[in-house]
Amino acid sequence: MAVINHDTREVSFKLVYCGTPMGGKTTNLSYIHSQIGADQRGDLVALATANDRTLFFDFLPVHTMVINGYQTKFMLYTVPGQVCYNATRQMVLRGTDGIVFVADSQLDRMEENVIAWRGMVRNLEDNGTPFDSLPAVLQLNKRDLPDPAPVPYMEYLLNSGPRRLPVFEAAAGNGYNVFATLNALAQEVLQRFHHGSHLATSSTAPQPAPA
């Protein structure tokens, strides 16, 4: 949920990266952390197992422009991808202002993509924030690996409903379209915030970057 603090003159938003286990959610945050100047971000907090699998969440606070004297802050979270951590995912999704769904483009991960997608939608429903009410973007990650699934096929699986999300082909490992994804979501969150409604139409959605 957006928090406006008139005393400190800050507006903060919570953005959550969801998606398939080992799909690249943490890699997205790590890349953002490595590329943003230290004056524009806090520490990357990762609660992970010894094998670098996210146990609870990763967290990275980032600041962006000052708008009419208010510093805009985005608190970036990831959720753990593994199926057994559903209760944790639901907890981290509480109060989110926007979603990045990170899908794995490897052909053998399509079923897991769909399972993760459905789980995310269900968790948001259970939290009382239906997915359709939230700004969201779809990132098709790992496009740099050999023989990725065709984009139309992934869109058919994950983005063929009445609401079409902006789609970004990405390779978080080398940073390709990581910032484009974040910027698109941040832009839509700010647009909806400005308009005072979380039911924005598709016309306000940012255009995806060229593949």
């Binding site: 406006i4 009419n68 208010y70 700010l190 647009q191 915030f193 400005h194």
Partner: peptide
């Protein structure tokens, strides 16, 4: 509902609010 966000003027020109996506976060 509806009175909340309007009290924070994000732009001096109402209805003219837009961001260049690249302006939000830039790689250093």
């Amino acid at each position: 509902r509806g009175t909340l966000t309007s009290s924070l003027p994000l732009t001096s020109a109402p209805g003219d609010f837009s961001f260049e996506a690249a302006a939000l976060f830039r790689q250093s």
